[in-house]
Structure formats: structure tokens, C-alpha cells
């Protein structure tokens, strides 16, 4: 709706969606800061110098708040209380009831998962994905069999995630994600890069990254023409 600058929330101020990633926040800040530069002629006659200065201060505020996870979370909570933040999108809520993809490994909320908080704030906390699972829901496949392409794909589908979702979360091109799942070893990048991809992918799925990397790389090595 129509809003004054002072009433705009930080996302509106930076012209990004509440789901924007940290990178987008950086980029938007850079862009908006340039627009509201004191010498920007695009503002000529519209805003007084005092108004421009005030807007710039708000932009700085917005950036400082949104760029750090902690303060951003805090801010999102505040927006939610004021009903300004749209509810999480349907795909996100769909994910919730799904039992953790790879429950067998009862990892404590690990350090490597923390990075994930930078992912879109709308997605439910990944802890939900990792919640201890009732033994009944234990997915037989993932616990016993090794992590090969189809197994990873199955895990992803069970978590209600599309390739696109994973690509957004990990910033890995969806093409490579598809290659990983289809085990097109020839098209995958060199081993160290692949290892990085697998690590991110495993974290996105919330499964045991070490096991997944080890299993997958073993298959990768075996298939490699020597």
C-alpha cells in the first residue's frame, strides 16, 4: 500500500523482498545508497537536503540490521508482531511435517549448520528439518544404504524441496545439482569443488555431510576413467 518513507520497513526501504539473501542485501544497499547520494541528480527538486540525509541514515540503519543474522532475526520478529511480515510461503510450511531426511545421525545442532541461518528468513528454521524423528518414520533407505545420486534425490524429494529450492539455498547452479543426482560424473567439476558442493547440499538437506561426501566421492572415484 501507499507508505511514507518513515513508515517503510527496512526491506521496503532497500527495495528487496523479505526472503532476500545476504548477498542481495549487500547489493541493494550499494544500489540504494548510490541513489540517495547527496549529489544524485535524480532526486533534484524532490527531496530537500535534510530529507535526503534522513533517508540515508535510515538506509544505513536498514543495512546494519539486515546484514547481520542476529539483528535481522530480531527485526523480523518485530515485524511479525506488527503483522508487517507476510507469513512464510506455502512450500515452506509443506516442509515442516516432513520427518528429518536422514535422522539416523543424531547430530547435535552442529556448527556447520549455523551458516544456514543466512538462508531466506521465511524458511522454517532448519532445526525443524532435523527434529528427532519418531522411529516409525525412520526412512529405511537413507540409514542403511549409501548416499548415491538417486538416494540424495529421494532425500530431497522427501523433504519437499525442489532443485530450485536447493539452488537458492546453496547458490549452486541447478544444473550441477541435477548432475549430482543423476551421477553424471563426467560433467561434475573437479573433486575439491564437488566436495564443496556436496557439503553445501548435505547441509541444505540437513543430513550427515561427512558420510554423504565420503560415499559420494567413493562412487565418483570409482566411476572416474583412469
Amino acid at each position: 500500500m501507499v507508505k511514507k518513507i518513515d513508515d517503510m520497513n527496512f526491506y521496503e526501504l532497500l527495495e528487496i523482498s523479505p526472503a532476500a539473501g545476504t548477498q542481495d542485501v549487500h547489493r541493494a544497499y550499494d544500489r540504494v545508497r548510490r541513489i540517495y547520494d547527496p549529489n544524485s541528480i535524480a532526486l533534484y527538486s524532490l527531496f530537500t537536503p535534510e530529507e535526503t540525509a534522513r533517508i540515508r541514515l535510515r538506509i544505513e540503519d536498514a543495512y546494519r540490521t539486515l546484514v547481520y543474522e542476529e539483528s535481522r532475526k530480531e527485526y523480523n520478529r518485530m515485524l511479525k508482531e506488527r503483522n508487517e511480515l507476510p507469513e512464510p510461503e506455502p512450500p515452506a510450511s509443506k516442509r515442516r511435517p516432513v520427518p528429518a531426511a536422514s535422522a539416523p545421525v543424531q547430530r547435535p545442532p552442529g556448527p556447520d549448520r549455523a551458516e544456514y541461518r543466512a538462508a531466506p528468513p521465511q524458511t522454517p528454521p532448519l532445526d525443524d528439518l532435523m527434529a528427532p524423528v519418531a522411529p516409525a518414520a525412520e526412512p529405511a533407505a537413507s540409514a542403511t544404504t549409501e548416499f548415491n545420486g538417486p538416494a540424495i534425490k529421494a532425500l530431497r524429494e522427501r523433504a519437499g524441496l525442489t532443485i530450485r529450492n536447493i539452488a537458492d539455498m546453496t547458490k549452486i547452479g541447478s544444473r550441477y545439482l541435477e548432475y549430482i543426482e543423476a551421477e553424471h560424473f563426467g560433467k561434475l567439476p573437479a573433486r575439491p569443488y564437488l566436495r564443496g558442493f556436496l557439503l553445501l547440499y548435505a547441509q541444505a538437506l540437513g543430513c550427515d555431510s561427512e558420510r554423504m561426501i565420503a560415499d559420494y566421492l567413493k562412487r565418483y572415484e570409482a566411476a572416474k576413467p583412469k
Partner: peptide
């Protein structure tokens, strides 16, 4: 400048 004006119009005129 076009993008800047777009942003300024959004914020000034809505």
C-alpha cells in the same frame, strides 16, 4: 538515473 528516479518516485509519490 532512470532506476534512481524510479526509486525516488516510489518513495516520494508512492
Amino acid at each position: 538515473i532512470g532506476f534512481s528516479m524510479k526509486s525516488a518516485c516510489r518513495k516520494y509519490f508512492g
